[in-house]
Amino acid sequence: MLLDLFLTFLLIGFVSFGGGYAIIPMIQLEVERHGWMTSQELIDVIAVAGMSPGPIATNTAVFIGFHVAGFWGGATAALAMTLPSVLIVLLLASFFYKINEAPVVQSAFYGMRPIITALIIFAAFSFAQSNGLLAFTKDSLIGGLLFLLCLLALLKYKWHPMLVIVVAGGLGILLY
């Protein structure tokens, strides 16, 4: 089991780019393929991982590893998830100043931006669909309204994200 966790999260760490939210679809695919959690359990894990300090992808890996194999599963998943980044950063750091200005490198980074955005949007829709938020129920309409109010508070009124989280949590307690 530990070897499966290690190899799975090592692969995810090596082939995923764009930050934690862009990695979530790949984590979801692997968790479902291995049968480690139900879709609802994974949604709950991602929600907690997103609110926990640290990178969401690593936090998610730790929670999944812990769920599957206890303490050593969490430690194994964390190591496997972070090892590729550490290795890649160490390798690229020595060449960074030389390759950063190269036109082909700049072009590659510009080319990756749309796919990273698409992966983040895919993750949002995937989890909204799994959580029943795309159906028109009373709860989904309240959730949609809460989403719009939070977005408005962040974009127009420039509220601090922590304040929005606290207010949304309070409204969730009152409304649900």
Rank of each mutant, 00 (worst) to 15 (best):
A135I: 07
L171F: 09
G74N: 05
E41Y: 07
M81E: 02
G18L: 02
A135E: 14
L42W: 03
S85V: 07
A123R: 00
A123C: 05
S85W: 08
G35E: 03
V62T: 06
A108W: 09
S16R: 02
T38Y: 00
A57I: 05
A135S: 07
A69C: 13
I142L: 13
L3H: 09
F136Y: 09
Y97S: 15
F122Y: 11
Y97I: 13
L2D: 01
E32S: 10
L171A: 07
D139Y: 14
S130G: 05
K138Y: 13
K98H: 14
M162L: 15
L3K: 12
Y97R: 15
A22G: 09
V105S: 01
F66Q: 12
V15Q: 00
L10Y: 04
I64R: 02
Y110W: 13
V31Q: 00
Q106W: 06
F9Y: 03
V167D: 01
W36Y: 06
A57Y: 05
L171T: 05
M26V: 14
G143N: 01
G20N: 01
N131W: 08
H34D: 02
F147K: 06
A77I: 10
G50A: 00
L146D: 08
G18N: 03
A47F: 13
T117M: 14
G13S: 08
F17D: 06
K156I: 02
I165E: 09
E41V: 11
I12R: 02
S85M: 04
P55V: 08
S130F: 02
Y176E: 13
L87V: 14
G20Y: 01
L119T: 03
I120K: 10
A49R: 05
S39K: 10
A77V: 10
L133V: 06
F95L: 15
F71V: 13
L149K: 01
V104K: 15
T137V: 05
L83W: 02
G50V: 01
V48A: 08
L146A: 11
A69K: 15
A61C: 09
Y21N: 11
L149P: 03
V68Q: 13
